[in-house]
Design a protein around this nucleic acid. Structure first.
Length: 231
DNA sequence: AACCAGGACGTGA
DNA sequence: TCACGTCATGGT
């Protein structure tokens, strides 16, 4: 890998951060805490607060969100999450006790309801078996419904592990810029970032969130990347 | 009215 | 391994 590519990864990060600022991922529906320093951070995004999740319940909410947002707009995933909250099932055992039809109805706005119902139940079983231990990436990938991006999202945002998250936007932006081939494999694109960034969870979290922020503005409509200030 | 959304899986070359 | 089709609802 050339020095130029290496520098580009950090340079783009700094540019995105300058453009959009800290993103406060992973958003949580509500942030209840008894930490006096964090009272007032009430909902959704939480810029510059890298201590979350602070409870197993918040971690579980993140995990549910990673499944619900698969190939689905985040706003739609939030609707499903709110329905689950109304049912008081953002709790592993309670979700497993919920009947399939009620669960399907709740997550309907997020789409793929038949698949995601199974996926949510599968990851919940896995989460219970973990008993608050940190899962390995390979363990996560064995869970039905958990692929590369979901595994990395769970580890990076749910468990604060230094795993860079690659998504469709990442591939779209960095191939458009010309830094990588558009067909680059997930693992290779992931390693490109991990090799050229300090192994810092905060940077990994912000960079991925910034990529999504930027892509929503310039890479949603085909042809992609028109007027991208990075290129 | 196509196209896209913070993908993953199953199948057959 | 690789390219495709499938899964589903909602917004633009």
């Amino acid at each position: 890998m050339s020095v130029n590519e290496s520098e580009q990864i950090m340079k783009i990060y700094k540019e995105l951060y300058a453009l959009y600022g800290p993103q406060g991922w992973w958003p949580l529906m509500e942030l209840e805490t008894d930490n006096p320093d964090k009272i007032g951070v009430t909902q959704g995004y939480h810029p510059l607060n890298y201590s979350l999740p602070e409870t197993p319940k918040q971690r579980y909410e993140i995990i549910l969100g990673t499944i619900l947002t698969q190939n689905t707009a985040w706003a739609s995933a939030v609707k499903a999450l709110k329905n689950l909250k109304k049912l008081n099932v953002i709790h592993p055992m309670k979700l497993l006790l919920l009947d399939d039809e009620t669960l399907k109805a709740a997550i309907r706005p997020a789409g793929f309801l038949n698949l995601k119902t199974i996926y949510l139940q599968e990851i919940t079983h896995f989460f219970l078996l973990l008993d608050n231990q940190i899962p390995s990436r390979d363990q996560l990938l064995k869970v039905k419904g958990v692929g590369n991006e979901t595994a990395d999202s769970i580890l990076l945002y749910g468990y604060k592990q230094p795993e860079f998250v690659v998504d469709a936007y990442t591939r779209r932006i960095f191939s458009h810029i010309g830094l990588v081939d558009e067909k680059i494999k997930y693992g290779n694109l992931k390693k490109l970032f991990e090799k050229n960034l300090p192994q810092d969870v905060r940077i990994y979290q912000e960079y991925h969130a910034l990529i999504v922020k930027h892509a929503k503005r310039y890479y949603q409509k085909n042809p992609y990347g028109v007027d991208d200030p990075l290129s």
